[in-house]
Amino acid sequence: MNSQAWLVAALVLFLPAAYAAENGYTLKATELKDKPFLDAVTVVTLPEKTPVEITTRQGAWMQIRTKDKQQGWVRMLSVRLGNPDQKPRGGGNLLSAIGIGNRPRTSTTATVTTGVRGFSEEDLAKAAPNAAELEKMKGFAATAADAQQLAAQAKLDRRQIAYFDADGKPLKEKN
């Protein structure tokens, strides 16, 4: 195995770990719970802008750790990603700008905006219809059986859940 292959192998091995850590901070004073339930015991109330390290996400909850080694669960919507003291940056690498963990990226240098593959308003404005590309897209279509198989592999169970309106009230029927 040459050195390049080792590098690829190393990157692949470290992927799951790299995904695990994300940094964030509390948007407002937030209760830190010992379990991901609303009626769970409150460990402490974290003040606004407490930096947190996000280790797990589960439904409406994030499992977090603070610098003082306090651990527990907070509501996802009470957390903002990134660093509380740093304003989000524009025009560059969004992931690093908002401080999403250490997601693997091959390019960590300053943003180069030339040669960026875009879908900007300008790209849209000058687009010529591409029928061949649409045919290609159709070639990747999944059947209902493919979808069923994908769901079964991951034990995804169909559920009956009603749509809800803007007030959060369940809607009887849609369409």
């Binding site: 439904g59 919507l77 940056r89 700008a97 908002i98 169909r158």
Partner: peptide, 22 residues
Amino acid sequence: GYDPYGLPAVLTTLASADPKDN
């Protein structure tokens, strides 16, 4: 059958970014 907070999670990612990002 998915964790229903997938879309809210994406929106929190986007909410954390600078809307002026290119």
